[in-house]
Amino acid sequence: MIIDKVKKVNEAEEKPVRNSRAADMMIGKWVKCDNCKEIIYKDDLHDNLSVCPNCGKHFRLSARRRIKQIADEGTFEEIGEDILTKDPLKFDGYMKKVETLKEKTKIQEAVKCGICEIEGEKAVLAVMDGNFLMGSMGGAVGERITLAIETAMDEKLPLIIFSVSGGARMQEGIISLMQMAKTSAAIEKFNQAGGLYISVFTDPTTGGVTASFASLGDIILAEPKALIGFAGPRVIEQTIRQKLPEGFQSAEFLLEHGFIDKIVERKDMKETIAKLIRMHKR
């Protein structure tokens, strides 16, 4: 999202500025990779799907950019955009925070769902967005995801869900918890109807989303190095009173322990999903 804006600003600028590396630095066209510490030109990072060209670190994506990378151009038709945040606990400051976020992120909730084509294959695509309250699942997210699952069932389409989530939406209390039951029950119905569900874990996915629909794919993919777990690393460290080893709860760790099918680099994600869809065609 931020990178998008930067790109637009850059495009509008005069060419000569490009020649001056010092000037670029000053107006923030460069970014330091927090993994390899390499200084990268933001446009290069953007053009490389927000993957560090030096070390391959997959930076987090907004739902909008993810959809752009997965859906064929112009095919994504959003569903459930009228399903909005509710405030069941009347939690102080919650709706105000949501309004501010809507303004800032230009999205209405932490997931975007729709029907699209992926290399010409029609599918239901749900993409969570970590910029919106850490992609937490409250009533609206649960309702949108369930609508996506039910749409896939009714239209006999494959279902693809990209998860990124800090877990349940605390501000909605027990209603958030119940979304785990609602979405998982919908997946079960979809299973019994013979639908194909591909779940993709992206960095980071924890808590109630890991403990519901995200772990229930027929095929479970993950982006490299994505943090995936039920309990967050800090909670575990506090419980066991020691530091977790390097790479604990990474996608690679989950692959080794048998909980995901395949780690797929971002550049290969669309093609992999399209292939899988074709292989399940009846």
């Binding site: 785990m180 039951a181 998982s184 029950a185 997946i187 079960e188 890991t210 403990a211 519901s212 629909f213 995200a214 772990s215 229930l216 995936i228 777990g229 039920f230 309990a231 909670v235 575990i236 419980t239 066991i240 977790l244 604990f248 709860q249 322990h257 048998g258 909980f259």
Partner: peptide, 22 residues
Amino acid sequence: AYPGMGAEERGQGEAIAKSIMK
């Protein structure tokens, strides 16, 4: 659910998800 290392290694999230679903 117990937030321990072993629990994560053995798929706490998956175990809960599957139980809910079934």
